[in-house]
Amino acid sequence: MTRSLHLSNVRLADGQRVAVSVVDGRIEALGAHVAAPRDAHIEDGGGALLLPGFVEGHTHLDKSNWGRPWYRNEVGPLLTDRIGNEREWRRASGHDAAAQSLALSRAFVAAGTTRLRTHVDIDTDARLRHLEGVLATRQTMRDTLDVQIVAFPQSGMLIRPGTVELLGDALAQGADVLGALDPALIDGDPVASLDATFALAQRYRKPIDIHLHEPGEIGAFTLKLLLDRVEAMSMQGQVVISHGFCLGALPERERDVLLDRIARLHVALLTSAPPSCTVPPLKLCRDKGITMFGGNDGVRDTWTPYGVPDMLERAMLIGMRYDLRRDDDLMIAFDCVSEAAARGCGFADYGLHVGARADLVLVDAESVAHAVVARPKRKLVVANGRIVARDGALLS
């Protein structure tokens, strides 16, 4: 059956008043003089600002404690402290990745997110249990939220024998992307770790998204090794570097050599714009043609008490971290959770144009900059051509 929707009296970012016609989940027409399709559901936007559905470029649905009682965080300061604490807590508490990923996914959709990339822990304790939970959530949300799953070795790969095989199983069973983590500081052997990662990616024909927290020169060394493999294995456009803290701490000359190579190999960068870490230079990366986008990272888990499933808030935090104050600069912050994020993750048919999947958000805001700063309640959320949320609440 043909499904059609007509949104009238809405405004684009440039202020133009338009209508949008949606048929079978796609934007069929968008403009100032668009007639409603026959038998369409007609919705008056009331002059609201029309935005594309938001994109969460990096989160961990399987870890979240969203909607559950407060988790008292008493973990030590080291990365390894957090990894070990989380693994033990999840085991002892019976943390349910299926229930928690579903709760957080629904909250993301209510706030306007329609595309999402999540990293899911694969390790020799839980094996594929967390993946199975998130696969169930993806199936439940399939008509509303486009979910990419990254098979992520949170506890390390080479230091936990059997993890490589489990990652392969995860890719075979439905994970879309191969994850990796700090090959030098966690696995202790960046050459062997990266060799294993790229061999797996080649075997299963999957892209790579690597967490690179390694600082300064250690991070730069790992990054060079990674870029060598991208080039040697012709994986241009198939790799994302998440966090990339070293790129915010290196001397300019060394940093710019790396950024030029990242641009040439079409490697994308992800930032959560953390206030306590160095970050890659956003505007310089964009000037060099690098796709740099945003994500929450963890939301209310054992790693952090912070985070909410609202990509307008993440855009605001990106703006604050990078001192983006002008309206045109705040458009950059929004791009990090919309067009750039879709491009970096490889989500197809995205945006406000004819033929795109109809993922739309209406907010009462004067401009995109105003929406980022004020983060108004989502007046309407359309996912895959269907109204799924109104006034900040899911309809089902």
Rank of each mutant, 00 (worst) to 15 (best):
D328T: 14
E217H: 13
L330N: 09
D301C: 02
H33C: 05
P376K: 09
G179Y: 02
H266T: 13
L61S: 08
D81G: 05
A97C: 07
L49S: 06
P305E: 02
V10R: 05
V191W: 01
T124A: 00
R11G: 07
D176R: 07
R90W: 03
R106W: 08
A19E: 07
T222S: 15
A393P: 02
H95W: 03
D39Q: 15
R91L: 08
G392K: 09
P153A: 09
L12P: 06
I27P: 07
L12S: 09
P309A: 05
G188A: 06
R129A: 13
A136G: 12
D328C: 00
R378S: 04
G307Y: 00
A175F: 10
A184C: 04
R91H: 10
H266D: 15
A315V: 02
L102D: 09
F152T: 08
L194S: 14
V147I: 15
R129L: 04
L49M: 04
R314K: 11
C285M: 14
L158V: 08
S396C: 06
D195S: 12
S242Y: 00
Q139D: 10
L135N: 09
Q173N: 13
P69Q: 13
G351K: 05
S101C: 02
G179N: 03
V20K: 12
D81C: 02
L194A: 08
P77F: 03
V20R: 11
L227T: 14
M316R: 15
D391T: 12
R375G: 03
Q238S: 06
G57S: 12
A383R: 12
V372R: 04
R26T: 07
C345Y: 09
L330E: 08
E214R: 09
M235V: 10
E214P: 09
L247G: 05
W70K: 15
Y306P: 00
G298T: 11
L166A: 10
D123F: 02
V22N: 05
G67M: 05
I149T: 06
H353W: 11
V373R: 12
R255F: 06
G168N: 07
D182F: 01
L250P: 05
S21P: 02
V134M: 03
T197Y: 02
A103T: 14
R325Q: 11
P52V: 02
A365Y: 01
L7Q: 08
S193K: 01
T197H: 11
L269C: 10
E165Q: 13
R229F: 12
G385M: 08
L247A: 02
A393F: 06
V279N: 15
V34I: 14
V20D: 10
G15P: 10
G294Y: 03
R253C: 00
R386P: 12
L259F: 03
S276D: 15
E313N: 02
S193C: 06
S93H: 12
L79Y: 12
G84D: 10
R261H: 11
R11D: 12
Q173K: 11
F293S: 10
A383W: 02
R326S: 15
I290D: 13
C345I: 07
A172E: 14
R261A: 12
V239W: 05
L200D: 06
